[in-house]
Design a protein around this nucleic acid. Structure first.
Lengths: 269, 269
DNA sequence: TTGCTCCTCACGTCACGTGAGGTGGC
DNA sequence: TTGCTCCTCACGTCACGTGAGGTGGC
């Protein structure tokens, strides 16, 4: 009962362009039900319409073809739909991040400045004992990766056997390549009162002492760049910058301290 | 007071990658404040930080570099911000369309089928007098273009002098290339009781008579493809398709009739 | 026969990312 | 001197779009 359609007819039915259909055939995402061996004409079955529409909808959401292919290859329909729903949830998260971007951009342009900018503070921190996870992370994955990392570390802190006791807010170290190439070895850490032994990817570490210029960022992560700009401009104009990773300390969901490595300015001797 | 920063420092301050900064220089979007004539080293002023951050935020929203450049070139800051807000509004619209896509995809996958599908009706329509605007339109621009077109036509209908009287719902004709190449000559029309003379891009036209298979689509435009699939499959499996544009009739905001050209099936003689 | 739809290359587009190979200042 | 940051090509990537040039069926 499944009739065959020319590529043009199939395009009108599915709202997928002819060029896209040929491309999906080329890359093995959606092959026509039949190809005329003499003419090379592609013929699609009406039964392929829902698949093509599914592809179109996910492409509308910018899902990569490889991801779509992987998900369509699921052995059964239930598994496939579960996989699709997982992807959909990820897209919903991205979408809400995009909305934050839009909202904060609008606020910026409409000139509701983001409240009084906090003063920049100079601070010397000593070496810090912490539980940490370090991994190569790409810019776009950082937020999700961090949430994951803290969940792991917290699981250790809450297990009775370990004896690790939290001694400060969640924090992270971002090395220059993370900003300059949008990929680098990020360290998520939680300070603890005393060193303990742990297994797995979590390591007990000693964060080195450092002199820092610190700005408190209040508000959404979408606005973090404004605080970076303010703090970095200050450091540059004072000519006090030194090498080293930038630290962020997550005091609570709306307050983040951004810490820039600077020269020591304690009384000269 | 504006200090100079190396490209790496500027990258950390603005969260724009080094490769992107070099690219923005190459295409003339953001040139460094200074370039060392001997080494070619780029140096950016701290005063350029806000511009770079603005670019980054709009790129996060996928605004094309050309659009960003155009908007940054505005003669004064007020004009620039107005232009940016206009772009922002467009993005908010796209964002809400994306949310519709996600919501309808979720509903589809979770198996809440979209209510009982309406029956497919065969209908013969006679030639129709209408006020119409025809223009080459790209797929992605269609919805905004249509809204514009109906606004223009309605303005004529509401002007006393013309004497044109609405005689049916808003409608549109979509030729095959609109689906197959995602660009084609779309006609937006409003049926009127009797021909009138108008000026400008609006033309009085006679839409040809046609035999149509008609399906009523209830719900969001994001789901229109399901009705196209159902109707097109029906037409294909009955082997009754003929050439001609597809019509859509916008009965009200949630009900759209999709009309597929088919062979006449009136009693043979 | 004519026009229409379809075909296959080959190349272009957009916004960078990825290396290769090399230089200047501390 | 060494390593680090920066430089300029040249090419790759992703998902198609844009033609050019050509064929088959009504």
């Amino acid at each position: 009962m499944s009739a065959l359609l020319s590529i043009g007819e199939f395009s009108r039915l599915t709202h997928v362009s002819v060029k896209a259909l040929r491309h999906y055939d080329d890359v093995g995402l959606l092959a026509p039900a039949e190809i005329d061996p003499d003419t090379g004409y592609r013929f699609y079955a009406t039964a392929q319409v829902p698949t093509a529409q599914l592809i179109r909808r996910f492409r509308d959401l910018d899902m990569p073809l490889d991801d779509i292919r992987a998900v369509l290859a699921a052995p059964d329909v239930a598994g496939r739909d579960t996989a699709l729903l997982i992807h959909l949830r990820r897209m919903e998260e991205r979408l809400s991040a995009t909305q934050d971007t839009v909202a904060s951009l609008r606020a910026l342009l409409e000139g509701h400045s983001i409240g009084p900018a906090s003063a920049i503070e100079r601070r010397r921190v000593g070496a810090t004992t912490a539980l940490a996870i370090t991994e190569r992370v790409r810019w776009d994955d950082a937020e999700a990766w961090l949430a994951d990392a803290y969940a792991h570390i917290n699981a250790v802190l809450e297990s009775e056997g370990g004896g690790a006791v939290r001694a400060g807010s969640d924090g992270a170290l971002y090395p220059p390549p993370f900003f300059e190439a949008h990929e680098g070895d990020v360290t998520a850490f939680v300070p603890i009162a005393a060193p303990v032994a742990v297994r797995g990817s979590i390591e007990p570490v000693q964060l080195p002492a450092a002199d820092l210029a610190v700005a408190l960022h209040v508000g959404s992560f979408a606005d973090l760049d404004t605080t970076y700009g303010r703090l970095g401009t200050y450091v540059a104009e004072q000519f006090i910058g030194v090498d080293g990773p930038i630290r962020e300390l997550y005091l609570d969901p709306t307050q983040t301290e951004v810490c820039w490595p600077v020269r020591n300015v304690s009384p000269q001797r």
